[in-house]
Amino acid sequence: MSKKTAQRRPKPKRNELTRKTPPWGGIIFFTCIGLIAVAAIGYAAWQARPVDTAGIDGLVETENLSRNHTPAAVSYPTNPPMGGDHDSQWQNCDGRVYDQALRNENAVHSLEHGAVWITYRPGLPAGQLDQLRDTVEKTDYTMLSPVPNQDSPVTLTAWGKQLKLQDAGDQRVSDFLRAFVKGPQTPEPGAACTGGKATP
């Protein structure tokens, strides 16, 4: 119908309905508004995202770990251990850096209290070690120590959770800490990271 009208009137008065060229001004305008909307809503959604524990690539999990106290040495199936029977005394884990290897039986008790234990293989480049020290010192409920014969340069361990990394600068260090420091896996929520064993 509009085509017919246009033929009858070769020089119609120019307005929004009769002009032939696309309304570029409007298209650009609303495209901009749309992009701003997508960016704003996307940013807001990203800000509000809940802690995601499933999205950590390479995460190893184990369940049904025993929790008895024992003064005896315990043989753990992984190195470093991810949980199991442990000493009655926990290793202090209030953002603590240890330069010597810890006794597994004390460290496992800290995992039970909700701590994340970061371990490294001796020989880790100094820059990477500094990065780990810095992270641990400013994060409560973490501790750092060397483990001489572990099979990866850097390992993060929480109760029943473990992640092996090649590099201390890996983004997953932060992801793991946000997910598991005092995280939902903690068998004894509210337990302390102070008042335990203060030396390796």
């Binding site: 800000q47 509000a48 809940p50």
Partner: peptide, 26 residues
């Protein structure tokens, strides 16, 4: 333009709540 801005503002206000309920941001 005003309508579009109102929609953007409403979306930015609502979407976090859809994702996160009535909870403060992490």
């Amino acid at each position: 333009a005003l309508l579009a801005l109102v929609l953007v503002a409403a979306g930015a206000f609502t979407v976090p709540r859809l994702f996160n309920g009535d909870r403060p941001a992490p």
